[in-house]
Amino acid sequence: MIAKTSVGRSFKGCCQYNMEKVELGKGQVLLSQGVRDYDLKGMVADFTRQAMLNPELSRSVWHTAVSFDPQDEARLLQEPQLIEQVATDYLKGMGLDQSQYVVIQHYDTAHTHFHIIANRVANDGHTVSDSHNFSRSEKLLRAMEQQHRLTLMKEQGYRLGIEHLPQADRYRLEMRNDVRQSLELSTTSNELRANLAQRGIELIVNRDKAGQARGVSFERVSQDENGEALRVAFKGSKLHQNLGLGQIQQELGLNAHKRALELSQQRELAKAQELTISPQNEEKQLKRGRGLSM
Rank of each mutant, 00 (worst) to 15 (best):
V216C: 06
P80Q: 12
V221L: 14
I117S: 00
A194R: 14
R172P: 02
S58M: 07
E191C: 09
F11A: 08
R9I: 12
P80C: 09
H132N: 12
T48N: 10
S58N: 12
T276H: 12
L31I: 08
Q85G: 02
G157R: 13
R75P: 03
A260H: 06
N226P: 00
R36I: 05
T88F: 05
I162W: 00
V121R: 05
L239C: 02
Q85R: 14
A233G: 03
V66S: 02
N177V: 02
G34L: 08
D169V: 03
G95Y: 01
G253P: 04
P70K: 11
T187S: 08
D72N: 15
L243D: 01
N255V: 07
K154T: 11
D224H: 11
S137C: 15
R207E: 15
L82N: 08
P70S: 06
N190Q: 13
A3I: 05
D208W: 05
P166H: 13
K4R: 15
V179T: 08
V29Q: 02
A270G: 07
K92P: 04
R36E: 08
F134A: 07
Y171S: 05
E274G: 04
P166G: 09
Q223P: 02
Q198L: 15
D130A: 13
N281A: 07
A51H: 01
R9D: 07
A233L: 05
Y107G: 03
N226Q: 15
L243M: 11
S186M: 10
A168I: 10
G244K: 06
N133P: 00
M294K: 09
R120H: 14
E268A: 09
D89V: 06
K287Q: 13
G211Q: 12
V61P: 03
Q81P: 03
L53N: 11
K258T: 12
K235G: 08
I162H: 03
S67Q: 10
R199N: 10
S237F: 05
T48C: 02
S189N: 12
S293N: 10
I117A: 00
E282C: 06
L245G: 03
S58H: 15
V102N: 04
E56Y: 10
D169Y: 02
M94H: 05
V29F: 04
K271W: 11
Q249L: 12
R220D: 05
G42I: 11
L160G: 00
L239S: 03
G125M: 10
A229S: 12
K154P: 01
Y171E: 13
I248P: 00
R214Y: 01
R207Q: 15
K284L: 15
A65C: 03
E228I: 06
S264M: 11
D178R: 08
H115P: 01
S10L: 07
M144C: 04
L252E: 08
